[in-house]
Design a protein around this nucleic acid. Structure first.
Lengths: 233, 233
DNA sequence: GTGCGTAACATTGGATGTATTTTGAGAGGA
DNA sequence: TCCTCTCAAAATACATCCAATGTTACGCAC
């Protein structure tokens, strides 16, 4: 229990970080569409800052892979291809399995309690059927497992990779038929971690990603119009 | 087989990328030491450019984890702790194993030929005993496996993680006693991939990282003076 | 002699100015 | 009608400038 000044600290975030977070959110929520150009002056006017913070934010987005740079032409929102999604998921499968294994060894008593609560919470959310609730519960559950590893590098990598598919998060949750699968997968991960069964936890985590992959890829094929961005003004 | 303009393109790299690469190399080779402050105006004078490209390069280094930002005070070269190294290696163990597995399925005939050549080359280099040669052969070998996965995201992640321990690369090679281990580990990975034995390849890759980890950690404990940076002027 | 306060300095954060490059439209010719 | 060349408009890349803040050192008081 440190101080509770953290809230006020947000006021003092450098503008570049505010812009960075704003743009990232806009890209991940689909407000800025793949292929759309990010022009410094327009963004600067829109956000009411000068070009400098915009540029620095774009540099970071570039390294994160959310925008692609074309020299002397500027940045645009990165295209998401089926291949790139599969690449991301392939890595995530390995890293989520690693998380599950490490969590078996390292999770604390409080962690276990939180995990149980999150697992129950997810089950309740699916029964209620509220998409947003389910997504939030899903994130919370995974977050506990990831955090339990205590590996800072792993934590930030997973967060980054998860982001890449953030805009598809709702797709596989909408699919009602998958709900009981989701619940049982979560429960299997949960129980394996509780027992300290590393192989079981890893296998369950992999299976979980496999199913997400199937669901997401199916959605993309059904609705491939996301590819082309449209101008905003 | 696209164009072969890639070489000439280097001439047209934006200044910020030149600075980015320069600073990154300086950090990884130890020319800029952990804890050392990166002051924009000094770097600008040193490299003969203005502050703008420096700033944008630092933003990228920040996201890559090579420098840490202190608000209103600037950037400094990130400290390397034993914990952070272990974190990196823990992730690499999983990703190298994944690479080996994927390579089993996806390596081409040319890839196999190159792999054989690289493997023999490494063995020859260890016999010759030239540290630099051995390191180069080691990189070449691993590169072939990583590239064979065809997963662009995985490739860049592994490259990034490898960089984090670049300055320790020579440490575990200097250790003469480990040479025959290195050779046999490489050979085991090589043979497993040739046979398409995924489990074997993954296990061998993990073992390989385990041994590197032991060697590097031992070196750090022997020579922990790297921790504190010194001012340059 | 030590500790506190203040002022000068150094450095980052952000804004603006300038030049080069790209793009796109329009005119002219095949 | 289509292609090409030219020119203008716009956007990036880089440099510089101003403002705000953190740091340091000096001096004064206790």
């Amino acid at each position: 229990m440190e101080h509770d000044f953290t809230v006020n600290m947000n006021e003092f975030l450098p503008l570049r970080d505010v812009v960075f977070n704003t743009l990232r959110r806009a890209i991940l929520t689909g407000e800025l569409k793949p292929g759309e150009r990010l022009m410094e002056i327009h963004l600067a006017n829109r956000l009411g800052v000068s070009r400098t913070p915009i540029r620095e934010a774009i540099r970071k987005l570039e390294l994160e892979g959310l925008v692609t740079m074309i020299p002397r032409r500027g940045a645009e929102v990165a295209q998401i291809t089926e291949k790139s999604l599969q690449d991301v998921l392939e890595v995530r499968r390995a890293l989520d399995a690693l998380c599950a294994e490490l969590a078996c060894d390292r999770i604390t008593a409080e962690g276990k309690a939180a995990l149980k609560k999150a697992c129950d919470g997810f089950e309740a959310a699916t029964k209620a059927g509220e998409i947003v609730e389910i997504a939030a519960a899903d994130v919370a559950l995974h977050d506990i497992i990831v955090q339990a590893t205590g590996n800072q590098r792993l934590i930030s990598l997973i967060n980054n990779l998860s982001e890449q598919m953030y805009r598809y998060r709702f797709e596989y949750i909408k699919d009602e038929s998958g709900h009981e699968n989701l619940v049982s997968e979560h429960r299997m991960i949960y129980e394996s971690i509780m027992k300290g069964d590393k192989e079981g936890a890893a296998a369950a985590a992999r299976l979980h990603i496999d199913n997400q992959e199937k669901s997401i890829i199916r959605q993309i094929r059904i609705d491939p119009n996301r590819k082309n961005g449209s101008r905003r003004h």
